[in-house]
Write a protein that binds this DNA or RNA. Structure first.
Length: 780
DNA sequence: CAGTGAGCGAGCTTCCGCTTGACTT
């Protein structure tokens, strides 16, 4: 029997560590926290110094019983949870839940999973740091108080089941405020000038591209400039060459991994975490929830060996990175391959891609700088003081770029065609091929992606590596935010070209505003945010977390008592909550967007009982107002009068067919036609606002034909209809509401009643265990 | 997954962080 019990947080970690320690050590995992406040109640005794009321988490009861038994038989229990606030609390909760004898309980910590680190830790045990535990209790209690007092305010004032919290509400605020910035953005255009010059390079002519250092605000200025160029002489006045270097990015943390996997692999934040978890459990990478960029000495050594072996020693450069992130707790290493010599791994496509990314990033982080030579060529124009600048770049030594280059979010960067320049001399006269002034529009600030939101939250010190993905799914589940694509719109721009002394104007169109997988606030998200910001500005302040973190740090250092800190916070917070609940005012967000020219009635958009609604006419008038729902992508804040009025054109009578009206409308499942109380979905290419009578009849007849074809056979069996039907995915058998697959090779037409019954009986009962990434369907 | 096209009703909802699992067909 093992005489030592070691408890760590993760089972994968337990497995590895068990190998390092002798037979005397049994290593078990706590699977994270084992106790928490009750899920359904506040569980904080406010009158009694905010005493928390803990319970063993329901899913941990069995585990605790098991650990209790083992602990009883062990000489020493080693609590080896992570070395941060939460980890310390886990150890403390374990000691309480297991009723551990503190005489034979030891607390140990290690940041890297290596044999030496663990043996070293065993040699240096300590007690549980109760100050650190108190800091965690303060964090936990504060979050519960905020969440469980704020959410009910929303239920009363806005609608049931909404939620608010220290982290999620600020995440929503970021998205709502960005959207407001975008709505308020004033697009302006300028004229950007680029010149192309002929250069003789031996016998051939090559083109030198150069940008003008100034941009013009108006077309007149651009034209004026081009006119001056028509008579000008172009001379190289200066060639400046200077060395430059690029350094690799630090190894991955959770947040940077999520960002890069999003940019390079198009992974959602939760997908990245699921795949990383698989790699971790397979022993391929280190722990994936970390805020540290630190690599263990062993990892640095392995990387150095690998780089020297694969690329030569001039590519190796040992680098130590330090974490600058606000509030980082650094309980783990950076995310890296467990074995640097595994360039690739076995696994599915996603696992391979993510591993490749991690491997390259880690290796590159230990490689030398890339060395460049940058050249700036200045071209004078004889008739005007503006100057053209041509830029060149030559890679002298690739260094880390041999394996990896980090991506950036600003993909709309001007593609200054940097490359090698042809041979040029100072004083050289240049022969212009053409000069273009292109109208460019200013860009509004970008909408957040899931990953760029994580980046922002991390910068603000809000949330932790283990909560980034869940937070993003929560704000979507509550309906505050949607992640979607939006189609762009066309706009015109101009190009003015000077070529062979002639000026030519060309009008062109481009598509602007296309969005792919971006976060948009919904109406309810905007409404909740505006309400919270106006009444609970302290909690919604971007610095709120950073401020309370300072206090938690003081508690951890023993300079502050945790429940006194909470008391200070709560007294003002709770008063605030009561005041808001006390005033009878309900947030009334409505926008009067204009007057209907046909009826002269007011057009109002507002949040109704069942979501956003457009109202035509006031409530007080004799005639009842008309209502319509906005389209899915229309928002209360931005919908125009024209768009709103359009929504009243449906339902619309198209004409009559077989003595009954055909009515076009948009329902829950998209546009449709109703005729004789039957419904016909409209294909994408048909618009319910404009569809004609003939086309509508065509759709109705087509559907009828399909319905006839749908039925292959009907059998009667014990008062039930057994139907063989044609569905979208081929033939199937339907009995009342249940459907059964027909084996692939059988011809559905040939099926007899007995065949059908056989299939029905052989089909196993439904196993509805759907796997999803984001939805954790917890129902009690 | 198998083709849909709502309307008051009682009682419930909710936080953030740590970690993975799932009684049986």
């Amino acid at each position: 029997m093992a005489s030592n019990l070691v408890i760590v947080e993760s089972p994968a970690k337990a497995k590895t560590i068990e190998g390092f320690l002798g037979k005397d050590f049994l290593v078990k995992s706590s699977f994270g926290h084992v106790r928490d406040l009750y899920q359904k109640e506040l569980s904080i005794d406010i009158a009694n110094d905010f005493k928390p009321h803990y319970e063993i988490s329901p899913d941990k009861k069995k585990l605790i019983e098991e650990l209790k038994q083992i602990a009883k038989k062990s000489d020493t229990v080693w609590l080896a949870s992570d070395e941060d606030r939460e980890g310390e609390a886990i150890s403390w909760h374990l000691s309480e839940a297991l009723n551990l004898d503190m005489e034979k309980t030891k607390r140990i910590v290690f940041h890297e999973i290596t044999k030496t680190a663990i043996l070293e830790a065993i040699k240096n045990p300590r007690g549980i740091d109760l100050n650190l535990v108190d800091a965690q209790q303060a964090r936990r209690v504060l979050d519960r108080l905020v969440g469980f007092e704020l959410s009910p305010v929303l239920w009363k004032k806005i609608k049931p089941s909404l939620s608010a919290g220290r982290v999620q509400s600020v995440a929503v605020r970021l998205i709502v405020e960005r959207e407001k910035e975008i709505n308020a953005f004033n697009e302006i255009s300028t004229y950007k000038v680029t010149g192309q010059f002929f250069i003789n390079k031996g016998n051939e002519k090559v083109i030198l591209k150069a940008d003008l250092s100034t941009k013009f605000d108006t077309k007149e200025e651009a034209l004026n400039f081009l006119n001056k160029c028509a008579e000008a002489e172009f001379t190289i006045s200066d060639i400046e060459t200077k060395p430059a270097k690029k350094s690799p990015a630090p190894p991955f943390t959770t947040s940077t991994l999520q960002q890069e996997a999003s940019r390079k692999l198009n992974f959602s934040v939760s997908k990245t975490m699921v795949v990383a978890q698989q790699l971790y459990e397979a022993g391929k990478i280190t722990y994936m929830r970390t805020d540290s960029v630190n690599l263990s000495d062993m990892a640095i050594d392995l990387a150095k060996t690998e780089i020297t072996k694969s690329y030569g020693h001039e590519y190796s450069r040992v680098r130590k990175y330090t974490t600058k992130t606000k509030g980082a707790q650094e309980a783990h290493e950076a995310i890296r391959p467990t074995y640097m010599n595994n360039h690739t791994i076995e696994g599915d496509a996603a696992q391979k891609k993510l591993y490749d990314l991690i491997w390259k990033r880690t290796l590159a982080s230990q490689m030398s700088d890339a060395l460049l030579e940058k050249t700036n060529v200045t071209i004078d124009i004889s008739t005007t003081p503006e100057k053209f600048i041509a830029k060149g770049e030559v890679l002298k030594f690739d260094g880390f770029l041999k394996v990896y280059m980090e991506s950036t979010d600003d993909d709309i960067e001007d593609d200054e065609s940097k490359g090698m320049l042809p041979p040029l001399n100072k004083g050289q006269k240049l022969d212009p091929k053409q000069i273009d002034a292109i109208q460019k529009y200013s860009q509004h600030p970008p909408r957040y992606t899931e990953a760029s939101l994580v980046k922002k939250l991390e910068e603000l010190g809000i949330g932790r590596p283990s909560t980034y993905a869940p937070t993003i799914s929560t704000i979507q589940k509550r309906g505050y935010v949607v992640n979607e694509d939006r189609k762009g719109t066309e706009r015109n721009y101009e190009i003015i070209t000077l070529e062979e002394n002639k000026i030519k104007e060309t009008g062109k169109t481009e598509v602007t505003g296309t969005e792919k997988s971006k976060l948009f606030p919904t109406d309810i998200g905007t409404l909740v945010n505006d309400f919270l910001v106006s009444h609970f500005d302290r909690i919604l302040d971007y610095n709120f977390t950073a401020n309370v973190e300072k206090e938690f740090d003081k508690i951890a250092q023993g300079l502050k008592i945790w429940n006194e800190m909470i008391k200070g916070f709560y007294s003002t917070f709770h008063k605030n909550v009561e005041n808001v609940l006390g005033d009878s005012e309900r947030p009334n967000y409505e926008r009067h967007i204009g007057i209907d020219p046909k009826t002269g009635k007011n057009v109002i958009v507002r949040m109704g009982r069942f979501g956003p609604v457009i109202q035509l006419g006031d409530n007080s008038e004799e005639e009842k107002p008309r209502f319509a729902s906005p389209k899915k992508d229309q928002r209360i804040e931005t919908i125009t009068l024209e768009e709103a009025l359009k929504q009243f054109e449906l339902p619309r009578t198209i004409g009559s067919f077989e003595d009954e009206d055909m009515i076009a409308a948009i329902g829950k499942f998209g546009p449709y036609i109703r005729h004789k109380s039957a419904f016909y979905s409209l294909p994408k290419e048909d618009d319910p606002l404009s569809i004609g009578k003939d086309r509508a009849i065509e759709i109705i007849l087509a559907k009828r034909q399909k319905d006839i074809e749908k039925v292959i056979n009907i059998f009667k069996h014990e008062d039930k209809d057994i139907q063989v039907l044609n569905g979208r995915w081929g033939a199937y058998i339907a009995v009342e509401k249940t459907n059964y697959k027909i084996p692939k090779k059988t011809d559905p037409k040939s099926l007899t009643l007995d065949d059908c019954l056989k299939i029905i009986n052989e089909t196993p009962q439904e196993t509805s265990n759907k796997k999803t990434y984001s939805k954790t369907t917890k129902k009690k």
